[in-house]
Amino acid sequence: MKEAIGHLLNPSTLEPNLGLYSGTLGIDNSREYPSSFLSSWKKIDSVLVDLITEDLVLGIRIFRGPAACKAILNLWYTQTGKFRNLEWSGSVGKEFLSKGTFRNGYWSFTQGNQRFNFRLDDTIQQGYTHSSILLGDLNLQLDALVSTVERSNKPVSSLEKSGKDWIFRLISSDLSVRGQLSLDDEIQNLESSEILSYSITTGFSNQSFLPESRVYGNGTGKNTFRLNLSQDTGILLWRNGVPTFLETASFKKESLSYVLHDPSDQIELTVTPIRTTHQEISGFFGKKTRIERVEGKISGKIRMGNKKETIKKGFAILEV
């Protein structure tokens, strides 16, 4: 079983098309990347979307993998502290669809009155997500469109080894979003102050999706930052949409909090948990991996430009 990934490269420069590249595997435009005998049993496709507004954080995950096909919705009303977690399971062939290349993909999960769709189209350089959920105590409709063409909003991509196979990941920066969010009786137009970010994982793994920790925050004025923390890609910091890897940073649990420290970049960040829940990730041959999901507030200082700023507000979603 082989799959060519030459379409990741610019044919004239042979450089990765997908922004900052951080993988451990070198991309060869003419090469087909082999996979193992059991790869068809370990194929995974996953997309994670975060929508951030003034009042709430909406997280949507759609994935299929070994023995699992699910959609997960996480709602965090940051003003009131209320949380909602919903999960739907389906069959891989019936409820889940993924096609196309890594960037020209279409991920879809449909079950009854619940519909989740995510699409990236490189030909028109846009991303689109739609969700429709109709329950007795929740009516949610989301239509959101982002542009992926802005020069300052280049994503980060990686191609990593996964046993005898490989796994590809694409992480977007924070994107301005247009559209509408309807939640119960309230309708919110998505225009300029809201942001959307997404990550895509495809390839072969023993787990149906990979844990992803995210930290969002604000300094003074319009300065924003985001951290993506993963075992594969390390600690990735976005400052006002520009990505850098924190090579000397550490992130660990200290007492009841989680602390990120980077002596070379003058960052001190503390996550104070508000709520901790547990989740199981389905895996190869029925193996289950147990993770903690931690939602919390952040505090500390971060360097923006030549100035070290106090973090004005922010929150973290950790999967550890």
Score class of each variant (00 low, 15 high):
238 W>H: 06
243 P>G: 03
275 R>Y: 09
164 K>G: 11
220 T>I: 15
137 D>K: 14
302 I>T: 08
10 N>R: 03
41 W>G: 08
220 T>D: 07
35 S>T: 15
293 R>V: 04
284 F>G: 06
312 K>H: 07
135 L>N: 09
61 R>Y: 03
93 G>T: 00
40 S>C: 08
144 A>C: 07
27 I>Q: 00
106 Y>S: 12
93 G>C: 04
147 S>T: 11
72 I>S: 09
210 L>H: 11
293 R>L: 11
96 F>V: 04
60 I>M: 15
284 F>H: 07
257 S>A: 12
144 A>G: 02
129 T>M: 06
25 L>H: 04
283 G>L: 03
145 L>H: 15
144 A>M: 06
25 L>A: 02
267 I>M: 01
45 D>T: 02
30 S>C: 09
222 K>S: 11
221 G>R: 00
94 K>F: 08
283 G>W: 03
181 L>S: 07
232 D>L: 08
243 P>M: 03
107 W>M: 13
130 H>L: 14
96 F>A: 02
18 L>M: 05
120 L>V: 04
254 E>I: 12
43 K>N: 10
217 G>L: 00
101 T>W: 04
9 L>G: 02
117 N>F: 15
30 S>E: 13
115 R>I: 14
127 G>T: 06
311 I>R: 07
65 G>N: 02
136 G>M: 13
18 L>S: 05
36 S>A: 09
119 R>T: 12
310 T>S: 12
191 E>Y: 13
52 I>E: 04
31 R>T: 11
13 T>K: 05
172 S>R: 00
241 G>M: 01
5 I>F: 13
236 L>S: 00
174 D>G: 07
20 L>S: 07
143 D>N: 15
40 S>K: 10
135 L>A: 10
178 R>M: 10
261 H>L: 14
134 L>A: 15
47 V>E: 01
66 P>S: 05
82 K>H: 14
254 E>F: 10
